[in-house]
Protein backbone atom coordinates (compact mmCIF):
# COMPACT_ATOMS: atom_id res chain seq x y z
CA UNK A 1 0.00 0.00 0.00
CA UNK A 2 1.22 3.48 -0.69
CA UNK A 3 1.94 5.42 2.41
CA UNK A 4 1.07 9.02 1.80
CA UNK A 5 3.32 11.07 4.02
CA UNK A 6 1.09 12.39 6.70
CA UNK A 7 1.47 16.04 7.61
CA UNK A 8 1.99 16.81 11.26
CA UNK A 9 -1.37 17.81 12.71
CA UNK A 10 -1.50 20.80 14.97
CA UNK A 11 -4.48 21.95 17.00
CA UNK A 12 -4.32 25.72 17.26
CA UNK A 13 -6.56 27.31 19.85
CA UNK A 14 -7.31 30.63 21.48
CA UNK A 15 -7.62 30.11 25.18
CA UNK A 16 -8.79 32.81 27.53
CA UNK A 17 -11.59 35.30 27.06
CA UNK A 18 -9.97 37.79 24.70
CA UNK A 19 -10.78 37.75 21.01
CA UNK A 20 -7.48 38.95 19.56
CA UNK A 21 -7.03 36.38 16.86
CA UNK A 22 -4.70 38.27 14.52
CA UNK A 23 -1.60 36.42 15.70
CA UNK A 24 -3.16 32.98 15.80
CA UNK A 25 -4.49 33.36 12.28
CA UNK A 26 -1.22 34.58 10.86
CA UNK A 27 0.56 31.64 12.49
CA UNK A 28 -2.09 29.19 11.24
CA UNK A 29 -1.56 30.36 7.67
CA UNK A 30 2.19 30.19 7.96
CA UNK A 31 1.99 26.61 9.28
CA UNK A 32 -0.36 25.63 6.48
CA UNK A 33 2.04 27.10 3.94
CA UNK A 34 4.82 25.10 5.55
CA UNK A 35 2.85 21.91 4.90
CA UNK A 36 1.22 21.29 8.26
CA UNK A 37 -2.40 20.41 8.86
CA UNK A 38 -3.75 23.02 11.19
CA UNK A 39 -6.99 22.44 13.04
CA UNK A 40 -8.20 25.82 14.22
CA UNK A 41 -10.73 25.50 17.02
CA UNK A 42 -11.67 29.13 17.43
CA UNK A 43 -12.01 31.47 20.37
CA UNK A 44 -12.47 31.02 24.10
CA UNK A 45 -11.48 27.40 24.41
CA UNK A 46 -11.20 25.92 27.85
CA UNK A 47 -8.20 23.66 28.52
CA UNK A 48 -10.57 20.67 28.55
CA UNK A 49 -11.93 21.56 25.11
CA UNK A 50 -8.47 22.04 23.64
CA UNK A 51 -7.23 18.67 24.84
CA UNK A 52 -10.40 16.90 23.73
CA UNK A 53 -10.03 18.36 20.25
CA UNK A 54 -6.38 17.35 20.09
CA UNK A 55 -7.28 13.77 21.01
CA UNK A 56 -10.13 13.48 18.50
CA UNK A 57 -7.99 15.00 15.80
CA UNK A 58 -5.02 12.82 16.72
CA UNK A 59 -2.81 15.88 16.73
CA UNK A 60 0.84 15.74 17.76
CA UNK A 61 1.03 19.37 18.74
CA UNK A 62 -1.13 21.95 20.50
CA UNK A 63 -0.47 25.62 19.85
CA UNK A 64 -2.07 28.09 22.25
CA UNK A 65 -2.53 31.82 21.87
CA UNK A 66 -3.54 34.31 24.50
CA UNK A 67 -3.48 38.07 24.98
CA UNK A 68 -5.51 38.53 28.12
CA UNK A 69 -2.81 37.92 30.70
CA UNK A 70 -4.29 34.65 31.96
CA UNK A 71 -1.48 32.51 30.50
CA UNK A 72 -0.09 31.49 33.89
CA UNK A 73 -3.43 29.89 34.70
CA UNK A 74 -4.51 28.51 31.35
CA UNK A 75 -1.31 27.20 29.71
CA UNK A 76 -0.38 24.94 32.63
CA UNK A 77 -4.03 23.84 32.84
CA UNK A 78 -3.72 22.45 29.30
CA UNK A 79 -0.59 20.52 30.29
CA UNK A 80 -2.35 19.16 33.38
CA UNK A 81 -5.35 18.08 31.32
CA UNK A 82 -3.03 16.22 28.93
CA UNK A 83 -1.58 14.39 31.92
CA UNK A 84 -5.06 13.53 33.16
CA UNK A 85 -6.02 12.16 29.75
CA UNK A 86 -2.71 10.27 29.53
CA UNK A 87 -1.63 12.10 26.41
CA UNK A 88 1.62 13.70 27.46
CA UNK A 89 3.16 12.76 24.10
CA UNK A 90 1.27 15.74 22.66
CA UNK A 91 3.51 18.74 22.93
CA UNK A 92 2.34 22.22 23.81
CA UNK A 93 3.66 25.54 22.59
CA UNK A 94 2.25 29.00 23.10
CA UNK A 95 2.33 32.56 21.94
CA UNK A 96 1.20 35.92 23.12
CA UNK A 97 2.18 38.83 25.29
CA UNK A 98 4.15 36.92 27.88
CA UNK A 99 6.90 38.47 30.03
CA UNK A 100 10.29 36.75 30.27
CA UNK A 101 9.88 35.62 33.88
CA UNK A 102 6.63 33.92 33.00
CA UNK A 103 8.24 32.13 30.05
CA UNK A 104 10.75 30.49 32.35
CA UNK A 105 8.00 29.47 34.75
CA UNK A 106 5.80 28.10 31.96
CA UNK A 107 8.63 25.99 30.56
CA UNK A 108 9.12 24.49 34.01
CA UNK A 109 5.47 23.57 34.01
CA UNK A 110 5.61 21.67 30.75
CA UNK A 111 4.99 24.19 28.01
CA UNK A 112 7.72 23.36 25.55
CA UNK A 113 8.14 26.65 23.78
CA UNK A 114 6.83 30.21 23.96
CA UNK A 115 6.91 32.64 21.07
CA UNK A 116 6.47 36.33 21.82
CA UNK A 117 5.23 39.09 19.50
CA UNK A 118 7.74 39.92 16.80
CA UNK A 119 8.95 36.33 16.40
CA UNK A 120 9.58 35.66 12.70
CA UNK A 121 7.14 33.02 11.42
CA UNK A 122 10.07 31.09 10.01
CA UNK A 123 11.37 30.63 13.54
CA UNK A 124 8.15 28.83 14.52
CA UNK A 125 8.28 26.66 11.40
CA UNK A 126 11.96 25.86 11.97
CA UNK A 127 11.26 24.86 15.52
CA UNK A 128 8.53 22.44 14.40
CA UNK A 129 10.69 21.01 11.61
CA UNK A 130 13.36 20.40 14.17
CA UNK A 131 10.89 18.82 16.53
CA UNK A 132 9.33 16.54 13.89
CA UNK A 133 12.09 15.92 11.38
CA UNK A 134 10.62 12.63 10.11
CA UNK A 135 7.04 13.65 9.46
CA UNK A 136 7.20 16.87 7.56
CA UNK A 137 6.00 16.79 4.02
CA UNK A 138 9.07 17.95 2.18
Amino acid sequence: MPTAVRPVRIVVAKVGLDGHDRGVKVVARALRDAGYEVIYTGLRQTPEMVVDAALQEDAQVIGLSIHSGAHMTLFPAVVEELKRRKATDIIVFGGGIIPDDDITALKKRGVEKIFTPGTPLQEIVDWLRNRFPESTTK
Binding site: G16, L17, D18, R44, S68, G69, A70, H71
Partner: peptide
Amino acid sequence: DMPTLMGQDSDAPTSRGEVGHC
Protein backbone atom coordinates in the same frame (compact mmCIF):
# COMPACT_ATOMS: atom_id res chain seq x y z
CA ASP B 1 -11.18 43.28 32.56
CA MET B 2 -12.01 40.40 30.22
CA PRO B 3 -14.76 38.78 32.35
CA THR B 4 -16.54 42.16 32.57
CA LEU B 5 -16.17 42.69 28.82
CA MET B 6 -17.58 39.23 28.18
CA GLY B 7 -20.51 39.76 30.51
CA GLN B 8 -19.54 37.24 33.13
CA ASP B 9 -18.94 37.51 36.85
CA SER B 10 -15.53 37.22 38.45
CA ASP B 11 -16.53 33.95 40.10
CA ALA B 12 -17.53 32.21 36.85
CA PRO B 13 -15.38 29.14 36.05
CA THR B 14 -14.15 30.63 32.77
CA SER B 15 -13.02 33.79 34.55
CA ARG B 16 -10.14 31.97 36.20
CA GLY B 17 -6.85 33.71 35.59
CA GLU B 18 -8.52 36.72 33.98
CA VAL B 19 -9.89 38.80 36.84
CA GLY B 20 -8.40 42.30 36.96
CA HIS B 21 -5.74 41.55 34.33
CA CYS B 22 -6.73 43.67 31.33
